[in-house]
Design a protein around this nucleic acid. Structure first.
Ligand SMILES: [Mn+2]
Ligand SMILES: [Mn+2]
Ligand SMILES: [Zn+2]
Ligand SMILES: [Zn+2]
Lengths: 148, 148
DNA sequence: TTTCAACTTGTAATCATTACAATATAGAAA
DNA sequence: TTTCTATATTGTAATGATTACAAGTTGAAA
């Protein structure tokens, strides 16, 4: 896990104040792969009793706006967050709602080459994101049922 | 625009009853590229006075479950719907929230080849969806501001 | 140490979506 | 064509994630 000192530096480097809440949110985000806000609130609350859910939402927003973390969208209707701000793709299983990171520089340059030749009329391409839909062999995360 | 007869047949072929609401929802979906539920409600209401929003939500759900239409996810937090159930990708502009369909069989076979060779450990790939992020030259759809 | 803009907190909205129960209707059967 | 009923629609009331707001707290600059 990333040392607190490094996390603090990242926060500070974006002109934000270093607070226990912000550090804990980033740590939770690294620990809980692609978590929902609610999971982060639960995890961070263990470290910071009295934590307000509002703070987590605010913190997530501010970290996204500073590009320290990212939002990720899935088939489910709740937002999820990504500790990794750099370019990468995702493996996603609709049944289990599990999502894994997928890095593939070879694929990226293949796609870059393809779109360098074939350019799309009226559209300036900035970033290509792949959602690789499928099934994991051993499912981990399971869809959280309502009222379960 | 697709004739009512064809739409009715599609509905019926999935074992659903043909209703004016369902036909109008599908027509609205074809007219309003990748609309949100609220836009569909507004459009369909012009043709069917007294329409209940609940009906539109129900109808959209049932059409998705029968694979007559699709849900699509954007950077915004509201769901959007797609009249085209077949495999295709999307061009998307975060600033304007505009989204266009993108069909590219050449790209699809390129990707198929790539992933036929390079298979991902512990993951059975089913479908590849590209979100092509960028900017349209002439922006059409504009982000709908809260309370605007 | 002092100072104050930036943060956090709790409570109360918001708002897209869903649950539910009553009513209406498509379309199969008679 | 009329009857019948499973299916569909409607209106109203939840739900639940997220946001707004105002009051109190604190990080860190000076
Ligand atoms: Mn912990
Ligand atoms: Mn119209
Ligand atoms: Zn990721
Ligand atoms: Zn589409």
């Amino acid at each position: 896990m990333k040392p607190v000192k490094e996390i603090a530096h990242t926060i500070s480097a974006s002109g934000l104040k270093i607070t226990p809440q912000r550090i804990a949110v980033i740590q939770a985000l690294e620990k809980l792969e692609h978590p929902r806000a609610e999971e982060i609130i639960r995890e961070v609350s263990e470290h910071i009793p009295g934590l307000s859910p509002t703070t987590v939402y605010n913190t997530l927003d501010v970290l996204v706006s500073k590009k320290i973390i990212r939002k990720v969208h899935t088939e489910a209707d709740v937002m999820r967050y990504d500790a990794i701000p750099d370019h990468h793709h995702h493996l996603y299983c609709m049944q289990s709602d599990r999502m894994d990171d997928y890095f593939d520089p070879e694929l990226d340059s293949l796609l870059e080459d393809y779109f360098r030749k074939k350019n799309i009329k009226g559209f300036k391409l900035k970033e290509i994101k792949l959602q690789l839909m499928g099934e994991f062999e051993n499912k981990e995360r399971t869809v959280i049922e309502k009222n379960a």
